[in-house]
Simulated scan of single mutants.
Amino acid sequence: MRVVPRALSVRRCALLCGSLALVASCGGGGADGTGGERPPGAPTGVTAEAGSATSVHVMWNAVAASAAEVDGYEVYRGSTKVKEVPGPQRMVDVTGLRPSTAYVFTVRARDTEGRLGPPSRAVRARTPGTTVADLAAPSPPARLRGRAAGGRAAHLAWSASTDDRGVVSYDVYQAGTKIHSVGGSRTATVVTGLRPGTRYAFTVRARDAADNLSPAGAPVLLTTTGGKEDVTGAPTAFRAGSHRSDGAYHLELAWVPPRVDGVVTEYQIHLDGRAATSLVFGARAPRDRATHSFYVGRKSGVTHRVRIRAKLPDGTWGGYSAERTVTTGGRD
């Protein structure tokens, strides 16, 4: 029998193990080294505009669809994370800043597995100075005009507001929700992310360096072109029952969220023909099946009619689900 010197044996073993490790590292693992799919890409189209002397409005484009679904975005001021927003949201106001200061912002996408994509390109914004005791808000923007720019966008224009210290930014609202912002030197913008064949009402408000916000100007109504991709945007497979707990009855609701471009985070529940309550899920909104329970009283044998509708990612309300009838303490 041939005897291999111990030192040579150890050396050969190390070389063999290194080769095996190299083969394993070159195997069929995922692009992110975890065996899974790649993390999201870097957001594009990132912009930053001063909203006041103490705030900056950051916007970006949605990360293109990939094998990993985007669950949210993280906004950084320098190397510090300052905001987290859910996937459907692509804008945020960073507040609590200092006047007359330059800031650098980046945005990163996060997927449903919690993996972060690379940062976007860095964008810069400088907050304006402020003056003491500025309590006067700008005048409302006048002569708001709008037209559809295809099925998914709208072009808006307005006359400049006046302010004793100067207008720093304009905020665009749809259905009472701020959806866009531009610098104070601009009096026109394009709003994107809309639905084809849908009627919208937009308003604009002006903001000065002291964060005084003007009243809204007159709204403009317009309808995007094309047919609706989802006729109603209503929740489907809606079910309702009741259960008794601690001497009181609760309605148990379940439904499938509407299939829309984005994630639905807010619902409105109608009970017996009237709006009863709002339900806000936030960043972890369910995508495939949603449930909710709410109190309806202590009496048995009371019959209720219930239905639900969703606030869609573009700020409009979708259609109502089918209405269900539930009797407390009965067979539903």
Rank of each mutant, 00 (worst) to 15 (best):
T203P: 08
V104I: 02
G318H: 06
L15C: 01
A206V: 08
F105R: 05
A50S: 14
A142F: 02
Y103E: 11
A210M: 06
S214F: 10
R207M: 10
G151C: 11
R205P: 04
G247N: 03
S55P: 08
S25R: 08
L194H: 03
R284V: 00
G78V: 10
F105E: 05
L194T: 07
A125R: 08
T95R: 15
V280H: 11
T34Y: 09
S100R: 13
V302D: 02
A149S: 14
V46A: 07
V190C: 00
G197L: 08
F281L: 08
P138N: 06
A48N: 05
R259E: 14
V63Y: 01
L22H: 03
P141I: 09
V231T: 11
V256H: 08
A42D: 01
T325V: 15
V23T: 07
L15G: 00
G27M: 04
A148W: 09
D272V: 04
R309F: 04
R6D: 12
G35V: 06
A237S: 14
V306W: 11
G282I: 08
G45N: 02
G183M: 04
D32Q: 02
W317D: 05
T131Q: 13
H270A: 13
G51E: 13
T47C: 02
R152I: 10
P119D: 02
V306L: 11
A149R: 15
R199C: 00
D314F: 10
T325D: 02
L251H: 04
H304K: 03
L156H: 06
A48S: 07
S25W: 06
Y267N: 06
G30W: 05
L279H: 07
L156C: 10
A24G: 01
G30V: 07
A285F: 05
P140W: 06
P257N: 03
L253D: 07
R126T: 15
R77M: 15
D246M: 06
R124S: 14
V220P: 10
T34N: 10
K81V: 11
L16D: 04
T54P: 01
A102S: 15
P99M: 12
T303Y: 00
A209T: 10
G96E: 12
S245G: 00
V172S: 03
A248W: 02
R121K: 10
S100E: 14
T225Q: 14
H304A: 04
V132Q: 12
V167K: 09
F105T: 06
A136E: 14
Y249A: 01
R145E: 14
Q174Y: 00
R207A: 11
K178F: 01
G241S: 15
V231K: 13
L15N: 01
A209R: 13
V4N: 01
R186V: 09
S278H: 11
T106G: 01
F294K: 03
T162G: 15
T277V: 12
T44V: 08
T192W: 03
Y267K: 09
L20F: 12
